[in-house]
Simulated assay, not measured.
Amino acid sequence: MNTIFLPLSPSLSPLLASRACFQRSTTLSVSHSSSTPFLSLSTPPPSLSSAMSSATLQSHSLTNQQPLTELNDESDFESILSPDGYISICGFGSLLSERSARSTFPDLLNFRTAKLNDFRRVFAHVAPVFFERGIAKPETMEISSLSVEPFEGETLVVTVFEIKKSEIPAFIKREVEFRFLAIRPETLDGESFDYPAVLCARYSDEEFLNIRCKGSKEMYFQQYGRWNIDKIWRDDVLPCRVYLRHCVLAANNLGDTAYNNFLDHTYLADRKTTIREHLATTGSGIMEEEPPESLKYRYGG
């Protein structure tokens, strides 16, 4: 477990303070399929330690240092389990939809809305699943999925729910392109949660290749190269249209607060254009487009 010191708001309490200096070097390997090379989830080597606190994770013009705890292996995830053996997951995109969450985690408990301070949502990385499902549009660069990154002053309406300890390996496998952070959400009334939740945050191409793929271009190709993707995290992409519509519908289903928060606190990769602005200009018509028949339930909000 690494502690990453980022400049955050003084109002954000330290996360997992009792574990802040506890670091691990254990490696967890997970396979995407029997024919796919193993991807590693492990503590980064010293040569990458500077990247962990570089622009990849830096907030904007902040002053006070507060720790964010990165979860590097399965034992790190287990260290934030509740006493009854469950772990909290924070949803900010498709997992704003309870239907989507339950399609992935059928036995989840206590699906509810929450608030996450000092993070923003950004459509800034390429998702292979959109190519696999035939909904990516590389000709217009509408191929991006959603992640979050630290940014002082932003507040996100998110969802939180609990899954069993036994579901942690599958979660890691499915979200392997992200950085896993332990964060402490709040209720919409501002009360801190009793236990931290796992958040899938922005990663970097360098770390994905050197840590997850152990420097192997073959492993990278299995995940991205076969779709002619040579860069994952980027600022020249637009949201996948079907996925964006799904996220907006999911936020709307949570009520006006969540809906307006998603429109006004979610950004394109330029980190200037909000989703509300995008849907009124370049992305006009997205909300009227139906997903392919086979994906209508999966991407129906």
Rank of each mutant, 00 (worst) to 15 (best):
L6H: 00
L8R: 00
P10H: 01
P10E: 14
S11A: 08
L15Q: 12
Q23N: 09
Q23Y: 10
R24V: 10
S29T: 11
H32E: 11
H32Q: 14
S35N: 10
S35D: 14
P37L: 08
S40H: 12
L41T: 06
S42K: 13
T43D: 12
T43V: 02
P44C: 12
P46I: 03
L48F: 07
A51R: 13
Q58W: 01
S59H: 12
S61C: 04
L62Q: 10
T63A: 09
Q65S: 09
Q65E: 14
Q65D: 07
P67A: 05
L68A: 07
L68Q: 14
T69S: 09
E70W: 09
L71H: 08
N72E: 07
S75M: 03
S75G: 04
S75P: 02
S75D: 15
F77S: 02
E78F: 05
S82F: 05
D84A: 03
D84F: 02
D84V: 05
I87A: 06
G91K: 02
L96G: 02
R99D: 10
R99I: 04
S100V: 05
D107Q: 15
D107A: 13
L108R: 00
N110R: 14
F111P: 00
N117E: 15
F119D: 00
V126L: 10
A127H: 10
G134I: 02
G134Q: 11
A136Q: 09
K137R: 15
K137P: 00
T140K: 13
M141D: 07
M141I: 05
I143E: 09
L146F: 13
E154M: 04
F161G: 09
E162R: 10
I168G: 04
I168H: 07
K173P: 07
K173S: 14
E175H: 15
V176M: 08
F178V: 01
F178E: 02
I183K: 12
T187Y: 02
E191R: 08
Y195S: 03
A197E: 02
C200N: 11
E207P: 00
I211S: 14
G215S: 14
G215V: 08
E218K: 10
F221N: 12
Y224C: 01
Y224I: 00
N228A: 13
I232V: 12
I232K: 06
R234M: 02
D235S: 09
V237I: 15
V237C: 08
V237W: 04
V237Q: 11
P239N: 13
V248P: 09
L254H: 13
G255I: 13
T257C: 06
N260W: 02
N261S: 07
N261E: 12
H265Q: 13
L268R: 04
D270A: 11
D270Q: 06
R271F: 01
K272S: 09
T274Y: 01
T274I: 05
L279Y: 11
A280L: 15
T281H: 14
G285H: 06
G285W: 11
M287Q: 10
P291K: 02
E293N: 08
S294F: 05
R298C: 01
R298V: 06
Y299R: 00
